[in-house]
């Protein structure tokens, strides 16, 4: 019982830490929407109005508490600009992201494990060396470079021009 209590206290502290850091980084010091929501020639008063509407004039504790309440009640409020509830936006977009991510993730892991087993099985043989060579090479390529290369290959006249 005591063990269970200690474990859950531990988990609670961890969650508190994660929310505190994510709040400080992404909300408190995060993007300030004010200046994308004001129009041309705004007056100081209008800027204050927008800041007030966004809740930026609230003290740290209040905003953090609001953030925690929103998180735990899963009521994420409404988008500042479109007024659409954030929950609905997430429901609309998350399935798409998952559908794009999961096949890559699963396949990548399967392939990685298979190659790893193969290499371990044939320790020291040429296939081990090829696989480990390739993987060291793969690790040395920046993600960014792959993306740029694919962009060129797939969609410009300098590559395959698959989508002319």
């Amino acid at each position: 019982m005591a063990y269970l209590l200690r474990k859950s206290l531990h988990g609670l502290l961890l969650i508190l830490g994660v929310t505190l850091i994510s709040f400080v980084l992404m909300v408190w010091f995060g993007p300030d929407q004010t200046y994308s929501l004001i129009g041309k020639n705004a007056t100081a008063e209008q800027i204050e109005d927008v800041r007030h509407a966004l809740g930026y004039d609230q003290p740290f504790i209040t905003r953090y508490a609001d953030y925690l309440i929103e998180l735990f009640t899963l009521n994420l409020g409404a988008s500042n600009s479109s007024g659409e509830p954030v929950n609905r936006i997430l429901a609309r977009t998350i399935p798409v992201s998952l559908a794009l991510m999961i096949p890559g993730f699963v396949l990548g892991n399967l392939l990685g494990i298979a190659l790893g087993l193969l290499a371990a099985h044939r320790r020291g043989q040429w296939s081990d060396r090829v696989i480990s060579g390739l993987s060291v090479g793969g690790m040395s390529i920046s993600f960014l470079i792959i993306i740029i290369v694919f962009q060129v290959l797939l969609s410009t006249p300098y590559g395959l021009n698959l989508f002319p």
Binding site: L14, V18, L25, G30
Partner: peptide, 15 residues
């Protein structure tokens, strides 16, 4: 517990 790139980008943004 915080995804690496998210954290790094958020810190760089905050600072």
């Amino acid at each position: 517990s915080i995804p690496f790139y998210l954290f790094v980008a958020a810190v760089a943004y905050a600072l």
